[in-house]
Design a protein around this nucleic acid. Structure first.
Lengths: 202, 202
DNA sequence: GTAACTATGTTGTCAACGGACACTTCTCGT
DNA sequence: ACGAGAAGTGTCCGTTGACAACATAGTTAC
């Protein structure tokens, strides 16, 4: 009555990643064990070796996958909003929501210890932040930035959101403060359309 | 010729913490092994159990220790600067310098998975941020804040610094950008003394 | 002074883990 | 149909964290 598993799983790589994503969500990075994952899937614990030479490679792939998902969230958020300030607001909400609901994954994504997969993770990260930076470039073209260089403005905005999410996740920032802090952040970075004058550089 | 170790170490707890701090700096949190630490010190692998019931307890203690050190750095930074804006600048530099030079420790300090020691870590964290919040309270008294609530202003400032350091550590922010981003952050949060008018809330 | 008490450290054991290797089973192109 | 290589298995090894039982060293009570 064994469910007649074929010898080849079919797409073990995806299955492992998918299961790992669940475990990471529920029990964190330290809860990921190759042996447990493979046992859940029903293969031997060395089977994923072809795809992930070691545990770190799996973590790298998981982080890359996370940036893919984050990227599409940010893309959707930017696309769903009409103007510059609305886009900035929408992106901020999407980013923080993602980082808070996937706190364990986010911790992995922004970890600085990586293995061979580092290059891919970096690339996926860059791609994920594309929509945000693109929005800021448009914002600059419209003269809506309070910081000149749009790259720097975007990265600083990103850093602030990341900091808010991180400090919230580890308990430094109280839960109720988050929304208002996002408000302040959006206000700081996205100047109003009506107001012609912006905070100029000294 | 064995160095005549006494049966009791004397202050094993401090010795373990000290050695663990070195390992964390050099090889990261995942490089910490109770057995290796105890071997280095020259005691049996279960000796620290009295002080740290499990590995997580050691990590918690290490994080708490980290916040103690961060707190004194921030305190010194605040004390060394004359006025509000200088203090904000000084604190920002000290914070980011600490988070970058102790990137592995910082990652541990701001991790959100903790064990029993969570309460102590939270308390130490709160204490560590005391000088920063105090500075912002004085800043508010002098009418120098661009955000009304000094607590929120301080936390948002902190979040931004934390985000800058975190994104720099994991490679998202290029090395050369950090200083200028700190500049922008200080400018955003600490209003000039001369300028009477500040960004008001809508 | 010595006997009990408590804090501190040791030894031995166990299960789980990651990693390495040789081997087997399947798939697919020719 | 068959050979090459991809995909997965079984087994072994060293390391690790946790646990229980035991040993040692100060400390206090009497």
């Amino acid at each position: 009555m064994t469910p007649e598993r074929p010898y080849h799983h079919g797409n073990l790589r995806e299955a492992v990643l998918e299961r790992a994503a669940v475990v990471v969500r529920e029990r964190g990075v330290s809860g990921i064990s190759l042996r447990e994952l493979t046992a859940d899937i029903g293969v031997s614990h060395t089977a994923p070796r072809r795809y992930f030479p070691d545990r770190q490679a799996l973590l790298d792939a998981l982080a890359a996958e996370g940036f893919l998902r984050l990227g599409s969230r940010l893309g959707e958020a930017a696309a769903a909003a009409p103007g510059f300030q609305e886009q900035v607001r929408s992106i901020a909400d999407a980013y923080v929501a993602f980082a808070l609901s996937e706190a364990n994954l986010a911790e992995l994504m922004f970890a600085h210890e990586r293995g061979e997969g580092d290059a891919l993770v970096q690339q996926r990260a860059t791609e994920a932040f594309g929509p945000l930076l693109e929005t800021f470039r448009r914002g600059q073209a419209e003269g809506r930035l309070s910081i000149r260089d749009p790259e720097r403005a975007g990265l600083l905005f990103l850093a602030t959101l990341q900091g808010i999410a991180g400090l919230r996740s580890c308990g430094v920032i109280p839960e109720g403060e988050v929304d208002q802090m996002i408000d302040e952040t959006v206000a700081q970075h996205a100047a109003r359309a009506a107001t012609g004058e912006l905070g100029g550089v000294s």
